[in-house]
Design a protein around this nucleic acid. Structure first.
Lengths: 102, 102
DNA sequence: TTATTACTTGACAGTAAGTGTCAAATTTAA
DNA sequence: TTAAATTTGACACTTACTGTCAAGTAATAA
């Protein structure tokens, strides 16, 4: 089970790129990228887009990993985590099938 | 599909209680409770516990509603929301079946 | 009308969490 | 040892969230 950070780091190393190079492309400090790869900071969607480009990763898949990471981290400690997800799924289906109110 | 706020407000009114009374029991400003019921602020877990007591609601069920609300709100706008949940579920199962690292 | 009650709203200050930047420290490789 | 790659922590800045409070609306009764 890979975290976002691990995915990014593995792919970067596979491609033989340095933090310096990738961070320059993404236009962020390399300290930030280092922290992202170690899951100490979370990338923005913009960063993910750029990262998927230079690392040749599927952008949508990366986004899924990113958000699911966040959610899993958020609720992994709850006893009722599975039930939470089921209810959340229903709510999302409901929200999508109904017009937005604001 | 009820939000947390709606659940709390409906039950409070069914029981014939005023914001003043409930907020006193929960030990929060009634302005905060008003905002919670209108989903303008989010209750803490402590508040939820107290609220479930005075409103005679199932504490765990309320917690599920609360967290699922938060998640649904967080990702309802994503195209890949359903996939996110599936992946999150896998990650949670993985996290629960493996010892914590820190 | 006035008064009272229930609730809502917005401003406020304080706190907590997140941001990017930078330099120093550490690790790794040659 | 040297140099390159990476990590770490301090810093100032911003953003988001907190509870408190006073003034606001709306509805009802006197």
């Amino acid at each position: 089970m890979e975290t976002i950070g691990q995915i990014l780091r593995n792919k970067r190393q596979t491609l033989g790129l340095f933090l310096r190079q990738v961070s320059a492309y993404v236009d962020i400090d390399q300290a930030i990228l280092s922290k992202i790869e170690r899951n100490e900071r979370k990338p923005t969607k913009e960063m993910l887009g750029k990262l998927s480009e230079i690392l040749k990763l599927n952008k949508d898949e990366l986004l899924v990993q990113f958000i699911s990471d966040k959610i899993a981290y958020e609720i992994a400690g709850e006893d009722c985590a599975e039930k939470v997800l089921k209810v959340a799924e229903k709510k999302i289906k409901y929200l999508k099938s109904h017009p937005i109110q604001n």
